[in-house]
């Protein structure tokens, strides 16, 4: 028996355990500090005005109503456009393509787009739409967000469809259902909760996106529902207000940040609940 070796192994182990606990503590403290600052400053800035008044000029009172409207409008359109495309593509990967080289390439490209910098997508839509229309517009913002929605929905749809047991597909085929019908009536239905999860995650993702809106939807100081005109959105207003020199704008920026975080966390929690039901 060599006590020296035992003692050293125990010491190394103890150091390592302390270090990883310390890492966890540092990480969690940093994240708690951020949430604390967000809650403190966010609630300080929150009032009824935030929801009822438009973004103010410096020095006057105002709220974020037009920005909230813009964010909701653009996200809704982006999701309505992006979801069917993403779902169909995900279905192709899981049901038709599976092991073909084309599916392999699409999977690869999709996963790259899933984590590609969103500012690049802004540049793409700028060139594709803004340059041709000669002005910034909410259409362009919606298009940019839709491009971000698609890969998220593709990935979750494929994953969820792959969880559906093959015996279900075989049962549908054995009673003579053509493939298209078996997908619509059996596999989609079986994976419904999972696919909805993906859509919720996609909404959570785009509701905080700032970079792709900077030079597509731009910003608008007024209440606007015209998709041909520039449109305000919460992230852009936060960006603009936080970078300004005015104290009341900073307060509104914090309130906006709190609203976005609350929305994103609520959506993610809902998505998680649905997902756990699916599995």
């Amino acid at each position: 028996m060599n006590r020296g070796i035992y003692a050293r192994r125990r010491a190394v182990n103890a150091i390592f355990l302390v270090l990883s606990t310390a890492a966890a503590a540092i990480g969690i403290i940093a994240l708690v500090l951020i949430l604390y600052a967000l809650l403190k400053n966010g609630f300080a800035g929150l009032s009824a005005d935030v929801f009822t008044k438009d973004t103010p000029a410096p020095g006057s009172a105002g709220g974020l109503a037009n920005a909230i409207l813009g964010s909701v409008l653009m996200s809704v359109v982006a999701v309505v456009v992006g979801t069917p495309i993403g779902m169909l593509a995900g279905t192709y990967l899981a049901e038709y393509g599976r092991h073909s080289w084309l599916a392999f390439i699409i999977r690869f490209v999709n996963d790259i787009m899933l984590s590609a910098p969103s500012i690049i997508i802004g540049l793409f839509i700028y060139q594709l739409i803004v340059v041709r229309m000669h002005h910034f517009s909410a259409w362009a913002g919606m298009a940019a967000l839709a491009v971000i929605v698609i890969p998220v929905v593709v990935r979750t749809t494929e994953n969820m469809l792959l969880l559906v047991p093959n015996t279900l597909r075989e049962a549908a085929a054995s009673i003579g259902a053509p493939r298209a019908i078996s997908i619509r009536a059996v596999t989609w239905r079986a994976a419904r909760a999972g696919i909805v999860t993906g859509v919720l995650l996609a909404i959570a993702r785009i509701s905080g996106e700032t970079a792709p809106l900077l030079f597509t939807a731009l910003n608008n100081q007024f209440w606007s529902t015209d998709p041909n005109a520039p449109m305000a959105s919460l992230p852009i207003v936060i960006f603009q207000f936080a970078n300004s020199a005015y104290e009341d704008w900073h307060t509104l920026a914090w309130a906006g940040a709190l609203l976005i975080t609350a929305a994103v966390l609520t959506l993610s929690i809902f998505a998680r609940l649905l997902e756990s039901r699916q599995r």
Partner: peptide, 24 residues
Amino acid sequence: PVGIAIELLAGVPSIIYGIWGLFV
């Protein structure tokens, strides 16, 4: 709970980290 909290934080939009960095 800790695992879920970390996963949720991974989804917090980056502008939140930016505004915290600037002001705090």
